[in-house]
């Protein structure tokens, strides 16, 4: 299971956190707020291996090019997050779907 695996697969998660901590302060702030938002929204893409690490890849590139984080993604950070997960159903969607008929087939 997604986040649990990531956090419990401690080595991987710790490496990820270490990469976040190596980012410039403005990037760290934005990354953390984004992650918090994404945890609340709960897109099923969170369970994939590439959503959060992909953001860090992208941020590392921007930082290396000497850009500020808002210069990179624009000031509407929420819109950026929503774009990232535009095609991903949320856990809430999956749950709601499981309520509307077909109990037990909550797979999309």
């Amino acid at each position: 299971m997604g986040i649990q695996d990531m956090i419990e697969g401690k080595k991987q998660w710790r490496a990820h956190v270490a990469r976040v901590k190596a980012l410039p302060p403005d990037y760290q702030i934005v990354y953390k707020e984004m992650q918090r938002y994404l945890f609340k929204v709960g897109p099923t893409d969170l369970a994939g291996e590439d959503l959060l690490p992909g953001i860090v890849d992208f941020f590392e590139e921007g930082a290396a090019a000497g850009k500020g984080v808002l210069q990179l993604i624009g000031s509407d950070v929420a819109a950026f997050c929503d774009d990232l997960i535009k095609e991903s159903p949320t856990y809430a969607d999956v749950y709601q779907k499981s309520l509307n008929g077909n109990p037990g087939t909550d797979e999309k």
């Binding site: 992208f58 993604i73 950026f80 095609e87």
Partner: peptide, 16 residues
């Protein structure tokens, strides 16, 4: 258009 916008588009193109 900022890089972040392009990043989200590229991500979708790759996924799809």
């Amino acid at each position: 258009v900022v890089e972040g916008t392009v990043y989200t588009i590229l991500l979708r193109l790759e996924r799809n």
